[in-house]
Write a protein that binds this DNA or RNA. Structure first.
Lengths: 121, 121, 121, 121
DNA sequence: GTGGTCTAGACCACC
DNA sequence: GTGGTCTAGACCACA
């Protein structure tokens, strides 16, 4: 796994887990990798993964069974979605529109990028 | 001037200057405020402004005339725009579209947000 | 470590690091001293060392692993050498030859200085 | 006239004047350009030229006749030469040899550069 | 433990 | 007046 400089690693790991939940790869009740497992597989310090798990647990996305491991929480999908959506509306969109303004990009330009992106992917 | 916690102040000052250039408020060759001047007016330590100016100078957006001050560089508009646009296309947009996917938002949803935003502003 | 007045300390520290790389004392991938460590050992403010490290990182000579420290970059030797060589050929040598001209010194004179220098060292 | 960043402008102007003396373009007793004249012609603040002239006067290279202007001093050639030679031997040469060492350049390499330089010029 | 940012204040060289 | 460098010390996020 590769990390960007712009964001804390533990948050990027969090995003990765949230994506799996949003894509329904990991369903509610599923066991997720142990801290050590994940740490080894993505070559990161266990402390960092631990921090991710605490972060997600605080937000009701995963929960811990002592001695057994971490599991996807009951309302994980809903919680994850509302968390992401909030960030999307409050941060991503305003930033998007402001940048488009500064770069003199119209909504049509955005549509072109969108189609291009969809076509490529 | 108000600053957010999420980004270093010196970068936010940099953004502020870039915006002025992109909005053509400051044109190529114009003198920009001296380090001390700007520092006082936005209530920030001169060292912080200095850091911004060094940062922008490294990127060819402003340049220094010794003993006189800083000036908007020759290709500042072009450089700034291409810098911002690159970030927009390579980082912001992919992230945006990915998030929309995860949230099951269609392009029409985006259009709604856009219109709403334009209506409000 | 002793510093000269004629050049900024952070650049002299940079030269020191580059020399270690050119002399192959520090090889690619090696961890270099932490900012605080080096600062203490050469009796300089950590901010000054930090500045050196940022400077070298910008030039692809060292890189940072977050929370761990700075390391000699992959092409550090190559980059350092070409950086120094470029300065040598484009600045030092022209200046040298020009000065020799002005002082009416021949290449033989230079050879004498060279031999003398080698004999002393 | 173009100036480099690496050295104070007033010193670069000083070098320019010394060169004229060493090349015997300006001989002892000759009047040199007035501060204002020179300042205008090289597009520099008169204060800067003033500083150059003070600097050279202190070193016995030029002298001032009040109300008339500046003139090349009696032992200007000798003084200039010894000044430059001192710098050459104490600064330029040690730096040259050290850099050659670091870059693994032999004296033969230096000879090649020398011949190339002479050939081109 | 690591780096990164910021402040306050000083001093200097230069224009 | 301008920028540039350095110190001292603080605080924070991250691994």
């Amino acid at each position: 796994m590769e990390f960007q400089r712009r964001q804390a690693i533990y948050l990027q790991i969090g995003d990765y887990i949230c994506e799996n939940i949003l894509m329904k790869k990991w369903k509610e009740g599923d066991k997720i990798p142990s801290i050590r497992e994940l740490a080894v597989s993505i070559e990161v310090n266990p402390n960092t993964v631990m921090r991710t798990y605490s972060y997600l647990q605080d937000r009701g996305i995963i929960f811990n069974k002592r001695g057994i491991g971490y599991f996807v929480a009951e309302n994980a999908y809903k919680n994850t979605r509302s968390l992401k959506k909030e960030g999307f509306i409050n941060h991503d969109l305003p930033h998007l529109f402001k940048t488009m303004d500064l770069l003199n990009l119209s909504f049509n330009d955005l549509k072109l990028f969108y189609n291009k992106n969809k076509g490529v992917t």
